[in-house]
């Protein structure tokens, strides 16, 4: 039973990472109807920037905040410079650009910081404030930070005028523009926020998997799986899906398939959900008119 609880709680910690990435993916999907295949590499790049700042002697939380600011601006720039001009281009063009960005971020990180693995510090104390053998201090901190961030994002979208405008721009761009919302600015803002959420995920997972340019590929796959399970039209669902994937990954790894087929597990989940319940657990069923 202890093993089961341990694996579940540990799964919640990685699930928090998947939930963040799933949320980032869904935010961009809501805004431009495309999957950001470069989300993982963007997060990895942000994490490298934080690592560099810390290596230059900056305290962790200062580096954390500067990295978030940088990610926000970077995300907005990517939207404005690369995606705004091809807004109406065919799907393939978008996929190709996302793949190109993946290549660029991956290789650029390798060029600047080389491909050897690096230790990334955990900001949390070595000991929990209470006695527990079930969850480590870093895992506890990750879940805490993620929940705080998700809470802030919820409050932002639910209770601020900008959040409302962003939701309007994603739900119905034409009507939103008619009531005076700058849809373009909202798109940029969405990209910036998604990059920030991804950067937090990257900085939280890096102490566990070590920092290197290829660290996010498998994690992004789980993020996608979380988004698909929860429903691509539902940000809240994507978060739940991410946590669910973290727990399922650990339990399946412990009791069924072993640790060597974790990526295959994500593949099976993605294909199965898309086949049998394409809207996911919480998504809206999209009806196409012919």
């Amino acid at each position: 039973m202890d093993l089961f609880l341990q694996q579940t709680l540990d799964g919640l910690a990685t699930g928090a990472i998947y939930a963040s990435l799933a949320l980032a993916v869904v935010m961009i999907y809501q805004a431009i109807d495309h999957f950001n295949f470069a989300q993982g590499e963007m997060a990895m790049f942000s994490t490298f920037i934080a690592w560099q700042l810390i290596a230059w002697g900056m305290p962790y939380w200062a580096a954390f905040l500067i990295c978030l600011a940088f990610s926000f601006i970077g995300g907005m720039l990517i939207e404005r410079v690369i995606f705004a001009p091809i807004h109406d281009a065919p799907v393939l063009s978008h996929i190709v650009i996302f793949i190109a960005l993946t290549l660029i971020f991956n290789a650029l990180a390798g060029f600047v910081w080389d491909f050897t693995i690096k230790e990334f510090p955990s900001p949390f104390p070595d000991k929990l404030p209470f006695e527990s053998t079930l969850i480590g201090p870093h895992e506890f901190g990750v879940v805490g930070i993620t929940l705080v961030m998700l809470g802030l994002i919820y409050v932002f979208f639910r209770f601020t005028p900008v959040g409302l405008a962003m939701r309007a721009a994603a739900a119905n761009p034409v009507s939103a523009a008619l009531v005076g919302i700058s849809v373009k600015r909202m798109l940029g803002l969405g990209w910036g926020l998604a990059a920030v959420v991804g950067a937090v995920a990257g900085m939280m997972i890096a102490p566990k998997v070590y920092l290197e340019p290829n660290m996010m590929l498998g994690i992004l796959l789980y993020g996608f799986a979380g988004a698909v399970v929860g429903g691509l039209t539902s940000p809240g669902g994507a978060v739940v899906g991410g946590f669910l994937m973290g727990v399922l990954e650990n339990l399946a790894g412990t009791y069924i398939i072993g640790s060597e087929l974790k990526l295959t597990f994500a593949l099976v989940v993605i294909v199965a959900v898309l086949l049998f319940k394409p809207a996911g657990l919480f998504g809206r069923v999209v009806v196409m008119r012919v």
Binding site: I82, V96, I97, I99, A100, L101, T102, L103, I104, N106, A107, L108, G110, F111, F115
Partner: peptide, 12 residues
Amino acid sequence: ALIWVAFGLFLI
């Protein structure tokens, strides 16, 4: 690694 950066830019 810059080869891949070049590849990416060329794709765009």
